[in-house]
């Protein structure tokens, strides 16, 4: 496979996947490593399923090929399932244990999937589940859930936690630096349990 490390960040438009991918990109710049990425913009941002590809040490195109991602960071459990085929054999999925039921399910009166069903279908991939909302709330703002997720995933990324922290501090709004710092650390603590 390619020599770099491929990260797929997925979620729902509005959950802050773009900020998360910017943090990864910025951390690469801090470490002086090449990086490429691709993301969903435009109409799909209106509550649709969104994805950001980040190729750490990427020299070529920005797209990750299904079956080759080293890690998926998912802000919504159902989205983790939608993109599961992207992860390579032996790869990791770090996911929020909560999910939003798509509105179409309600409108059509279909049965909503349950957390147990989704977990069963995610099967035996290296899964790391966490309660991002609760930790973000503990850190001081529900908006920091994306940074919690990055903290948890930081154990598996080829970037030093220090570079990631610096990148977070550079990119989040000035007033929220403290909250996001805490969110990152809470996530990192929770993610430690996922390492074999």
């Amino acid at each position: 496979m390619s020599p770099g490390y491929d990260v797929l960040v997925v979620g729902i438009g509005g959950q802050g996947t773009i900020l998360a991918s910017n943090v990864l990109g910025e951390a690469c710049l801090i470490e002086g490593r090449p990086v490429k990425g691709a993301e969903t913009h435009g109409m799909a941002q209106r509550g649709g399923s969104v994805e950001s590809h980040i190729r750490i040490d990427g020299e070529y195109g920005p797209l990750i090929t299904p079956g080759t991602a080293d890690i998926i960071i998912s802000f919504d459990l159902l989205e983790a399932l939608r993109y599961k085929h992207y992860v390579r054999p032996g790869g990791k999925i770090v996911a929020n244990r909560h999910f939003v039921v798509p509105t179409s399910v309600f409108v059509q009166g279909a049965a909503a999937p349950t957390e147990e069903e989704i977990r069963a279908r995610l099967g035996d991939v290296g899964l790391c589940l966490l309660d991002a909302e609760a930790m973000a709330a503990e850190a001081g703002s529900p908006l920091a859930a994306n940074i919690v997720m990055l903290g948890a995933a930081s154990h598996f990324l080829p970037l030093s936690p220090d570079s990631l922290r610096k990148a977070v501090e550079k990119l989040v709004p000035q007033k929220t630096i403290e909250i996001n710092r805490k969110a990152f650390d809470l996530g990192r603590e929770a993610g430690a349990g996922c390492r074999e």
């Binding site: 496979m1 390619s2 729902i12 438009g13 109409m43 799909a44 941002q45 209106r46 509550g47 649709g48 399923s49 090929t65 299904p66 079956g67 080759t68 159902l78 989205e79 399932l81 939608r82 993109y83 599961k84 085929h85 992207y86 039921v101 798509p102 509105t103 179409s104 399910v105 279909a110 909503a112 999937p113 279908r121």
Partner: peptide, 21 residues
């Protein structure tokens, strides 16, 4: 140079298209 193995999305995942806010 790289041989990709086919990896397709799982079936029957409720779609999440963009919607009006």
């Amino acid at each position: 140079k790289i041989q990709f193995v086919d990896a397709d999305p799982l079936p029957d995942i409720p779609p999440r298209p963009p919607i009006m806010c």
